[in-house]
Amino acid sequence: MTDAILQARGIVKRYGRVTALDNADFELRRGEILAVIGDNGAGKSSLIKAISGAVVPDEGEIHLDGEKVQFTSPMQAREAGIETVYQNLALAPALSIADNMFMGRELRREGVMGKWFRMLDRPAMESFARQKLSELGLLTIQNIHQAVETLSGGQRQGVAVARAAAFGSKVVILDEPTAALGVKESRKVLELIQDVRSRGQSIVLISHNMPHVFEVADRIHVHRLGRRLCVVDPKECTMSDAVAFMTGAKAPPPEAIAA
């Protein structure tokens, strides 16, 4: 309990008649990689949206670092230290890579130009973006001015991951970050996730890819029908068990439910 950095209790989120989250619990421990798995429509994306301020839950409580938080916008969650890579990436396709990385937290020039004319500090933003992208090693982008829509799917994913990883936060949430990627690019993202964790950040990884989940996760949160079904340890459970739990083919062991 005490080592939980992010905790949610009894989250309910309804979209009209659809109940996307039905009394869901969630716990992320400090410095761990928590995988969230579940069938399509289980409510994984809704869960992370509720945690990251993208939607406001109808019921339930969220605690970050022991303090109760109530985010009404992604900006607030970000300021509190939760960065998210959404499934749809949340990039503006016609804008440049640097503009996208700094969307909502742009850097302004020093002095009069920034203060009075509110001029963006493009050189600083671009060199930061270039540095983060090369740290990631994921991209061979020649032109940082390139519009995001002219990038390949993997490159776009890289920009979104770099954006979340770049701003030293407490928690990084990734919603299916490797879904659109090739083998090598996925590998880079997994390495990045481990890098980010080694810097002391805690990570939530939503993924359908069992090998990836079992490779990097410390614990696995199994989501089913809008709620947390159980939490399992990847070292004590096989992939087929996990798939059986999330599809309802098999009931989870009682000690996993209590977790």
Partner: peptide, 21 residues
């Protein structure tokens, strides 16, 4: 300016812009 970039981002995809901050 940031405001101008936001205008473009909203026109592109308002949901993505909102999520991006």
């Amino acid at each position: 300016t940031a405001w101008g970039r936001h205008v473009y981002a909203i026109g592109d995809d308002p949901d993505a812009a909102e999520l991006a901050g």
